[in-house]
Simulated assay, not measured.
Amino acid sequence: MNSTVMTMETLRFLGTTISQDLKWDTHIDSIVKKAQQRLYLLRQLRKFNLPQELLKQFYSVTAESVLCTSVTVWFSSATKSELGRLRRIVRTAE
């Protein structure tokens, strides 16, 4: 119908960044950045000597929820290095 179709490098859909080549590096970059920001907040909260259980809940609600969003979509096709970056975030929180 003589319509022009626009192509895009990446598309953000329901919180998941999908790239044109169907690789997940852009998405994983964004969730690692978000998780690191939230871990910074967690470190700041530790300075106030909050109970361990409260810190665990904060991690679960803020950082873990970011890491697990749409994990069933991208996890199986993520590279080892990308998964390693995610593991480092989790180990840092531990």
Rank of each mutant, 00 (worst) to 15 (best):
L54C: 13
T26L: 13
Q44S: 11
I18L: 14
V71W: 05
V61K: 08
E94K: 10
S60F: 14
S3C: 12
K34F: 04
L42R: 07
T69F: 14
Q44A: 09
E82M: 08
T26C: 13
R12E: 15
T69K: 10
Q36A: 15
S76L: 09
L42N: 05
R46W: 03
S19T: 15
G84Y: 08
A35L: 04
T79W: 04
A93R: 04
R87K: 11
N2Y: 11
L11I: 14
K33Y: 06
L55G: 03
E64C: 14
L39R: 04
K23L: 11
L54V: 15
A93C: 04
Q44T: 11
L45E: 05
S60N: 12
S19N: 07
A78Y: 02
T16A: 07
L67Q: 05
E94L: 09
V32P: 02
N49E: 13
S70G: 05
H27C: 02
L39P: 01
R87N: 10
T62M: 12
S77W: 04
L67A: 03
L45T: 05
K56I: 09
V73N: 01
I18P: 00
G15D: 02
L22P: 04
A78V: 03
T69N: 14
L55E: 02
V32F: 03
S19V: 07
A78F: 06
D25C: 10
G84N: 12
Q37P: 00
R12A: 09
R46S: 05
Y40N: 07
E94M: 10
L39C: 06
R91T: 10
K56Y: 09
Q37T: 09
Q36W: 14
S65R: 04
Q36L: 12
W24P: 01
K23I: 07
T79F: 05
D29L: 03
R38M: 14
F48K: 07
M6P: 00
L45S: 05
R43I: 00
W74Y: 07
I89V: 15
R12Q: 15
M6I: 15
L14M: 11
L11T: 13
L83W: 09
L14K: 00
N49Y: 10
A35W: 03
L14H: 06
